[in-house]
Amino acid sequence: MDDRQGGAALAGAFHADVVRPLLARAMPRLRYAAARLGSGSDVLGLDDAVSRDHDWGCRLTLLVDDADAVPGIDRLLERGLPARYGGHPVRFPVTWDAADTHNVEVATVADFCRSRLGVDPTRPLGAVDWLCLTGQAVLEVTAGPVFADATATLAPARATLRRYPPDVERYVLAAWWRRASQWMPIIGRTARRGDETGSRMLSARVAEDLCRLAFALSRQWAPYAKWRGTAFRRLDVAPSLDGPLTAAVSAPRWEDREAALAEVAEVLGALQRERGLPAPDAVVTAFWNRPFRTVDEAVWTALLAEIHDPEVAALPPGVGSVEQWADSVDVLTSSDRRAALRAAYRAWISPGAAPGRSRPGPQGATGHAR
Rank of each mutant, 00 (worst) to 15 (best):
residue 10 L to M: 07
residue 18 V to Q: 04
residue 23 L to N: 03
residue 23 L to M: 11
residue 25 R to H: 15
residue 35 A to M: 08
residue 36 R to C: 04
residue 38 G to R: 01
residue 50 V to T: 15
residue 63 L to S: 01
residue 64 V to W: 01
residue 68 D to L: 10
residue 72 G to S: 13
residue 73 I to Q: 00
residue 83 A to M: 10
residue 94 V to D: 03
residue 98 A to F: 13
residue 102 H to E: 12
residue 102 H to I: 08
residue 105 E to H: 12
residue 116 R to G: 03
residue 121 P to N: 12
residue 126 G to A: 07
residue 128 V to C: 00
residue 129 D to H: 07
residue 131 L to F: 03
residue 131 L to R: 04
residue 132 C to G: 09
residue 133 L to T: 01
residue 144 G to M: 03
residue 149 D to G: 06
residue 153 T to C: 05
residue 164 Y to D: 00
residue 168 V to C: 03
residue 171 Y to K: 03
residue 185 P to G: 08
residue 196 E to G: 12
residue 201 M to T: 11
residue 205 R to E: 08
residue 215 F to W: 01
residue 227 W to H: 13
residue 239 P to Y: 07
residue 243 G to S: 12
residue 250 S to H: 09
residue 253 R to A: 14
residue 257 R to C: 07
residue 264 V to H: 01
residue 274 E to Q: 15
residue 276 G to T: 05
residue 282 A to M: 11
residue 283 V to N: 02
residue 287 F to I: 11
residue 287 F to T: 08
residue 288 W to E: 11
residue 293 R to D: 05
residue 294 T to P: 01
residue 301 T to P: 05
residue 305 A to E: 11
residue 310 P to T: 01
residue 318 G to Y: 03
residue 318 G to I: 07
residue 322 V to F: 01
residue 324 Q to T: 12
residue 326 A to E: 08
residue 328 S to H: 10
residue 333 T to D: 14
residue 335 S to P: 11
residue 343 A to F: 07
residue 360 P to Y: 12
residue 361 G to E: 12
residue 362 P to L: 13
residue 367 G to K: 06
residue 369 A to M: 06
